[in-house]
Design a protein around this nucleic acid. Structure first.
Lengths: 346, 346
DNA sequence: ATGAAAGCGCTAACAG
DNA sequence: CTGTTAGCGCTTTCAT
């Protein structure tokens, strides 16, 4: 049938006619409303079956004024952290759907493109989306205010202080502080930072602040020449950074990478060069995000876990709340817990 | 403004009134139709700006009978291979949108749930989706035929012979054959299979066939006791399988894993146990998919690359063709190229 | 408990 | 080149 059997053209009216009832009644049955005599319901259901009836969602959306679609916008799906996040938001939505209104999640990639982020935010509302959860990379408070006539929006994982929108994120500063304290405790002194340079947005800065706090609390200072910007945040960039770092006459004894993906590249390069990594070895390496592969590198990577599942659930919950009661709620500011995961690389 | 400034309520009619033209003209401007006097266009654009007008997509969808939304359904987004695939389909769609009708991709996870796959396929059409690209795990030909009144559908990466739908996939049998031939060439003789057991669908079977062909072409046979089913296809399952395999009195000298994710776990376990992996070492390990992390394991993993980008582009192209000319095209059967990637693990 | 009818906001004939 | 007029299929008061 060449993937084109006549697509179900039966409308609600058709069903109503066939069942000998009105459209309203069919609608009631379809939406599980009460007040339908069991016997009528039976007749309607049968008619629906015979005609292979399926609701036309576009029509429903138009009539209801809502689509039941929310978007999750992440910079890159190729970063396992964001893939995992998407996975958990989809699952949370499905659970939500099981006990109430159905929610569909549209995953979108912004490619860290500010323009794309703006479009998305501007597109909430009558457009297609009932709301958006976004992990912004470039979006500023000014953008949000300029784009004001916008719909429900939740910022995820990026702290824009006093922003006029709901915000769910872990405490990046504290996490970075704890991670660094751990390194210092293990006797590390020359700490290099990799990948914190090229970010317009705040995450890098927050983590850098946390690192600095820990270092200064120990009465030390960070060596500025050990802060390496990179051209991207992929594994290969971590790999190249490792080479630059280890070629120095005064290499670091610890490397804090901006995320696990970069750290994985770093570990690989060090392994190829025969540089020992881990407690008592030449250098310690850490990341952020606790992506699944971090438990399987050699050595396994010390990192920070953001409780992705909880983060995803919370973000969705906040968004749905906002969708239901638009103006009543004040912007919410939720901090989710994190956890330091110490493994063999430190 | 609490993420809830009055969402743009201006309709096309409002704009028309304000610009002193008819709805049709505004529609023409919005859709970039020709035959609008520049001066009128100006006026309309200005009115749109003043009223913060944005089209209501639900209304457009209803009127046009199409949504411009296609879905990509993958089993798990947490498998980097599928995340990568999703990434490339989204990009392909965005390129497509730049030169023509806009296409939005809805990523969905089936969790390898047959019921969910059926729902999706059944939901194409007036529902919400103009079409679906699906990586089926359980869907059978019978399902497709039973679900006949369905819309445009492309099967991705799973060969259902003579299926009544479009199909885009690489040649799993050939790829597995080449991979195995490579192992045999390197002198490996006792080849174990990990993760090929618990799949309802055909991929596992196809790959197993290819492996068998290569082995038999070399005048050998596979040791059935070296075929380990696993309880899942995550890294941890590869890890556990390694233990079971290496505890044997007669361990294999090569392990073909069902995919890279499983292989990563296998490598980790072997590393922890101090078992040498690679040419000349105790055992060779291989996977399928060439996920990004496979180039960064220690040792780097030998695997098969499916040219994800090309695969994604092709699948989308086929789907869009199908959407445009529903009944004219006969089901298409496209085989995309693959590439053996030999690295240090073999 | 069910029916009748008026939209939801946009598009697409068909006129003019 | 622009206006008029019907719908697209569903939901939803308001009656009955």
């Amino acid at each position: 049938m060449a993937s084109g059997g006549e697509p179900s053209r039966a409308t609600l009216q058709d069903v109503a006619a066939r069942a000998g009832v009105s459209a309203k009644t069919v609608s009631n049955v379809v939406n599980g409303h009460p007040h339908v005599r069991p016997e009528t319901r039976e007749r309607v259901l049968q008619a629906m079956g015979e005609l292979h009836y399926r609701v036309n969602l576009s029509a429903r959306h138009l009539a209801r004024g809502r689509t039941g679609i929310v978007a999750l916008a992440v910079p890159w799906l190729s970063n396992p952290y964001f893939a995992e996040l998407a996975h958990h938001v989809i699952r949370a939505a499905r659970r939500e759907a099981e006990r109430g209104e159905s929610v569909t999640v549209l995953i979108d990639e912004t490619h860290s493109d500010l323009e794309r982020e703006r479009q998305l935010v501007a597109g909430v509302g009558p457009q297609l989306l009932d709301g958006v959860i976004i992990s912004p990379q470039g979006l500023t408070r000014a953008d949000l205010e300029a784009l004001t006539p916008m719909g429900p929006l939740v910022l995820l994982g990026e702290r824009i202080f006093d922003g006029p929108v709901d915000h769910v994120a872990a405490d990046n500063v504290a996490a970075a502080r704890e991670l660094t304290a751990h390194l210092l405790e293990r006797g590390r002194r020359r700490i290099a930072l990799v990948g914190f340079g090229d970010q317009r947005a705040g995450t890098a800065q927050l983590r850098r602040d946390g690192i600095r706090q820990a270092v200064e609390a120990a009465g030390l200072t960070l060596d500025a020449t050990l802060q390496l910007p990179v051209e991207g945040l992929e594994r290969e960039h971590g790999m190249r950074a490792a080479r630059r770092l280890m070629e120095r006459p005064d290499p670091p004894d610890a490397v804090v990478c901006f995320n696990d993906v970069v750290a994985v590249g770093m570990l690989k390069a060090l392994s190829l060069d025969g540089v020992g990594v881990g407690p008592g070895a030449a250098v310690a390496v850490t990341g952020f995000d606790n992506i699944p592969e971090s438990g399987y590198t050699v050595p396994a990577l010390t990192t920070v876990d953001w409780r992705t599942e909880e983060l995803a659930e919370t973000a969705l919950e906040v968004l749905l709340d906002r969708i239901q009661s638009r103006r009543t709620l004040r912007p919410r500011e939720i901090t989710t817990p994190h956890r330091l995961v110490v493994r063999d690389s430190s």
